[in-house]
């Protein structure tokens, strides 16, 4: 675990460093710039979906989906980050406690 933490930390730090040290033309290509801008959208959306529906390698609909729905409502109401997360977690815990969803 420690090795992967240190490698990942070093790797993401070097990514930041690279932008200051490398000659500009290497990252200035429009196609690379565009792709790098789109990557977080794709991956964050995929992470939302996977963390909501995956139980190991099977799909499941459970209380997490309810929590995500509550998070969407909170975001639409422009709630701050922490509020979004707290209402998602507590609403999930609540429907579990009621026994409505696993």
């Amino acid at each position: 675990m420690w090795a992967s933490i240190l490698i990942a930390s070093f790797g993401t730090y070097v990514e930041k460093l690279v932008g200051y040290l490398l000659p500009h033309h290497m990252l200035e290509r429009e196609s690379i710039r565009r792709m790098t801008g789109l990557l977080p959208v794709s991956m964050l959306a995929a992470l939302v979906a996977v963390q909501t529906f995956a139980v190991d390698q099977t799909l499941a609909i459970d209380a997490r989906l309810f929590g995500l729905g509550v998070a969407v409502v909170a975001l639409l109401l422009r709630a701050p980050f922490l509020v979004v997360i707290i209402v998602a977690a507590t609403s999930t815990a609540f429907v579990r406690w009621l026994g409505w969803l696993p």
Binding site: V48, T52, R64, G67, L68, L75, V84, A88, A89
Partner: peptide
């Protein structure tokens, strides 16, 4: 459920 909510808030 806080995990997907966190990613959604980032997205």
């Amino acid at each position: 459920a806080a995990i997907p909510a966190g990613f959604l808030a980032l997205l």
